[in-house]
Design a protein around this nucleic acid. Structure first.
Length: 429
RNA sequence: GGAAGGGUGUCCGAGUGGUCGAAGGAAACGGUCUUGAAAACCGUCGUGCCGGCAACGGUACCGUGGGUUCGAAUCCCACCCCUUCCGCCA
């Protein structure tokens, strides 16, 4: 969430920028609650002071009848005002939490994802001298995907992945882990892009797949909750991205400057109900309730947060280039970056069967918006951390891109060069 | 799942109704002493919120949330977490 002091000092800006993100918040109403809350708080504290003074008078000896009467009277007044204060604070907090993070100055203003701005295209759309098939056609023919049986067991939008596709997934995982834990690989990216960040290697992490309501909410990733899976018997949700359980890992901690930046490469199976996307992307494994993902997460101080964001994007690009998949980079507009984001980009991979680019990556920079509610500081007392997350590879969609861009007329798939060592030297599957 | 014990400041740890924001120790920081260092000694040493230009004042916080009481770290209830033992289990 935002700092209330910032909202008090910049009410008009907050109002305007919230609107640009598609959140029409009544800032004046929020400030009204804030004022009322502070007035009540002062009254409550004055009464508590009286009560404390009375207690100090009576300590050591039995209080007189008179003092007890006075105390009871004070207690009732305090309790009454505390209830009023609690009610106001609840309204205040609900409203405060609805205020989105402020977009950075370079974020394009827009009303929908159509207003996202293309920054560049890398690689030419793959050319074929035959009609390219969709990943679903190839994979089903190869026996790599079985959705019909998955439907019997788990319902729609689930799949069994089998055979060489599974090997390919693990090859990608191993490839990325090798690269991101190698600080010389990172250092080369830093130099090439002239970035001012440390070459600290990523720590690979296998996180828990479930997350408490309170923590999920503090990350501001619980909503929309109809897209989340809730565990019936516990106060737990299945995470929708490794980022949800990685970013929250250091909640209520202070990270000393010598340990910054904290960089994690998380691998997790993520779960999404895909509410509201019925009938969309039903072919193959493009949009699933369950998918595996390699996710980068980093915690920095305020000074280096933006540079870290650019670094994570540079890594995403480098990994895509290493796999040889044509892609485009989009700067997401105010309406599309997401509530906790100050800035965000998408990478879309070229999919020959759809003759277009489709989203495979996102990179999110949250400034201190998440850290404020997580009580996460970095580099000193009261200095809120800046958080960044970015997809390394969403494995399902990455394999779709590989299958479609590397397909042969015979319906085979060439293995990208960098992955061959992880596939036992196989060049085709 | 059953039984027992426990969660207190940066850390260890005392505290079972008022004199407790909290003993004592360690660490850290400043100083005295010393050629220098160690030791010893002296001092400083939690955070949030509200008010204030500030100095400062107030308030809250002893796992979390309720409750009892004139008054709660301390008593009661619920929950969370940790440890040990038993059971079950990959």
């Amino acid at each position: 969430m935002l700092d209330i002091q910032f909202i008090r000092d910049n009410a008009a800006i907050v109002q305007e920028k919230s609107k640009q993100k598609g959140y029409d918040i009544d800032i004046q109403q929020l400030l009204g609650f804030d004022k009322e809350r502070r007035e009540l708080l002062q009254q409550v504290e004055a009464l508590r002071r009286q009560r404390n003074e009375l207690t100090a008078q009576t300590k050591g000896s039995k209080p007189s009848e008179d003092q007890i009467t006075k105390g009871k009277n004070l207690r009732d007044q305090v309790t009454d005002l505390e209830h009023k204060l609690a009610a106001i604070e609840k309204e205040y907090e609900i409203l405060l939490k609805t205020v989105p993070n402020m977009p950075l100055g370079d974020v394009p203003i827009g009303a929908s994802e159509d207003d996202n701005q293309e920054v560049k295209k890398v690689g030419e759309p793959t050319k074929f001298d035959f009609k390219p098939k969709s990943h679903a056609e190839i994979a089903e023919a190869k026996g790599w995907i079985d959705k019909e049986r998955a439907a019997k067991v788990a319902g729609s939008r689930f799949a069994y992945l089998k055979g060489d596709l599974v090997k390919l997934q693990f090859a990608i995982i191993q490839f990325v882990i090798d690269k991101l834990t190698d600080s010389s690989f990172l250092d080369a990216i830093i130099k090439e892009n002239n970035l001012q960040v440390a070459s600290t290697a990523f720590t690979p992490v296998l996180p828990p797949y479930v997350i408490r309501t309170e923590v999920y909410d503090a990350m501001d990733r619980l909503e929309p909750r109809e897209d989340r899976y809730k565990l019936d018997q516990d106060d737990l949700w299945l995470q929708g991205s490794a980022e949800h359980v990685l970013g929250s890992m250091h909640t209520k901690e202070g990270i000393p400057s010598e340990q910054l930046p904290v960089r994690y490469l998380g691998y997790a199976t993520s779960f999404r109900r895909e509410a509201g996307s019925y009938g969309k992307d039903t072919e193959g494994i493009f949009r699933m309730h369950q998918f595996d993902k390699l996710e980068m997460e980093s915690i920095t101080d305020a000074k280096t947060g933006l540079e870290e964001h650019k670094f994570l994007i540079a890594i995403q690009e480098k990994l895509m280039q290493d796999l040889g998949i044509p892609y485009r980079l989009l700067e997401k507009c105010t309406a599309d970056i997401g509530k906790p984001n100050a800035r965000g980009v998408d990478i879309d991979a070229w999919l020959p069967s759809q003759n277009t680019y489709r989203e495979t990556h996102t990179a999110d920079y949250m400034t201190d918006y998440q850290a404020r509610r997580l009580s996460l500081t970095a580099g000193g007392k009261g200095q809120l951390a800046h958080t960044n997350d970015a997809t390394a590879f969403a494995l399902g969609r990455t394999m779709i891109a590989i299958i479609e861009n590397y397909q042969t007329p015979e319906g085979n798939v060439r293995v990208p060069d960098v992955l061959q060592p992880y596939m036992g030297g196989k060049t085709d599957i």
